[in-house]
Design a protein around this nucleic acid. Structure first.
Lengths: 147, 147
DNA sequence: CTTCATGCAAAACATTTGCAGCTGG
DNA sequence: CCAGCTGCAAATGTTTTGCATGAAG
């Protein structure tokens, strides 16, 4: 409907620039990460890639994700249960709303975080490099259904 | 030096009140969690408990932690790498400063979080139940040493 | 062509679970 | 006494790794 997938092109050209090979499997992972709204997990990505390239292995998905993390082209949301989730559209730290029922992950930008960071730097002497902010709750959809 | 360990007594009596058995191993885990400043991991707790009760198993440590989580007497900080960490002194969600070099975890209260929560509730329709806020950086100690 | 990526299977971890035997209340 | 806890070992789930084969550039 709107303009071409700029984020996908961006990721592609950055890999090419650094001399990484653009294999079909890799490209498929890039496309999924650059396009998906839903913060997919490794298994989700694997399932989708297999639709296009049935021989793809889960290990290759992980290897591609690892590569993209090193290049700062994907944000990893680590969880101790249920596997990690990935954001390829906006690979910089930003707040998330996570539904504890359906496990949906939604972006939620809050400008005021920068202020907190400066405040903490001054109060504690920490050199703050990054952050992670998640809110857990029940999304409108899940509040509607059932109990 | 100061008054008796109120938090430890609190945890003890809450377990007793609900009819859970106070075994030596369990009590040792409670004491460590109620007293430690450093947000220990399961393995750390296990090591410390074994000093007092050498036959203790790691499984028992995990089982005790699981019990305390269910009773909301400990806060679990889940990480995808390096194992989870636990806060028994303040089991309610609060911000942490995490040193990426020495893995130290320091508490960092910020009042303004409540405002953000309300703002998000209104903007998104999410019913927010909990949150997690961590800042990653380099602590003053680690900035001093080496590079 | 040569190097790098893939795919398989096995390894690595943190955590959980099943179960026989022990023990706190 | 006996329900609930412990300790062992095996299972689990996710992510990583080693290595031979295969394909990108």
């Amino acid at each position: 409907m709107d303009n071409p997938d700029t984020r996908f092109d961006q990721m592609l050209s950055r890999l090419r620039l650094r001399g990484f090979r653009l294999t079909p499997q890799r490209i498929a992972v890039l496309r999924i990460l650059s396009a998906s709204e839903g913060h997919p997990g490794a298994e989700d990505i694997y399932t989708q890639v297999k639709n296009e390239f049935p021989t793809t292995s889960l290990a290759t998905v992980y290897k591609t994700i690892t590569l993209l993390k090193e290049l700062n082209e994907v944000l990893e949301l680590g969880f101790s249960e249920g596997g990690n989730r990935y954001d390829g559209k906006n690979p910089f730290p930003h707040p998330h709303l996570i539904c504890v029922k359906c496990k949906k992950v939604i972006d939620a930008d809050l400008e005021s975080l920068g202020d907190l960071t400066e405040e903490l730097t001054q109060d504690t002497g920490f050199e703050i490099l990054s952050h992670r902010l998640d809110f857990f709750g029940i999304c409108p959809d899940c509040k509607g259904e059932g109990k």
